[in-house]
Amino acid sequence: MGEPVISMRGVTAELGSRPVLRGIDLTVHRGEVVALLGANGSGKSTAIRSVIGQVPVSGGEIELFGAPRRRFRDWARVGYVPQRTTAAGGVPATVTEIVSAGRLSRTRFGLFRKADHAAVHRALELVGMADRAKDSVNALSGGQHQRVLIARALVAEPELLIMDEPMAGVDLASQEVLARTLREQVAAGTTVLLVLHELGPLEPLIDRAVVLRDGCVLHDGPPPKAVGQHALPGHDHVHPHDASGAEPIRTGLLS
């Protein structure tokens, strides 16, 4: 097992006065693909946002590439894909312009050289959006927009990818492109920590699943294996004997 890339020890965090993380321990080693799972409000987004310094931590320690997060400056090694929001900037921007913003960590004073322009083009090719390079991002579908955000994270050629629900609201065609892109990155040795609502099409890639509940780690180990028909993406346990109209009981870890 490689050296730890992310290491969280006893991390606690509050939003307002409500505790959201209550002592999270999580280590991601080099080359691993770790999925953070859990119900809405279990603290999975807060956990990864605390890793990148977007959520103030009230206790515990976080290390990135062996350095305490507060002193970590080598951000070009980290690619971040935020949860896609419908809110765009107030001014139109092209796909190229958005992806170029991700390359700033590799440039000096924001000056782009030939290699930087080439990297932008390569990142767009990785996600199959090179033909839309000059289009406004406002003209894209949800899935295409997500692919642009992933290109923006990949353009700095990061060693660690942190993704917050990359599959949320993404059409099937884009899901396949995203899964393939991620597979290529993982094959090239990239470490991945991603928040997922369910394993879905990424399931074969995932080495380890960490399940959160109420801000605590409930399970840390191999991803829950589903068999037979249960292995189909998006499968839920449905018990038809229940009173009709009742919320189906979802017994899976992911429910």
Partner: peptide, 20 residues
């Protein structure tokens, strides 16, 4: 500073993770 200002104005959270 147009590239930096663009990045920060477009997505503040992402800009922070690029180390700006």
């Amino acid at each position: 500073l147009r590239r930096q200002l663009f990045a920060v104005s477009q997505d503040e959270e992402f800009a922070r993770v690029t180390g700006l």
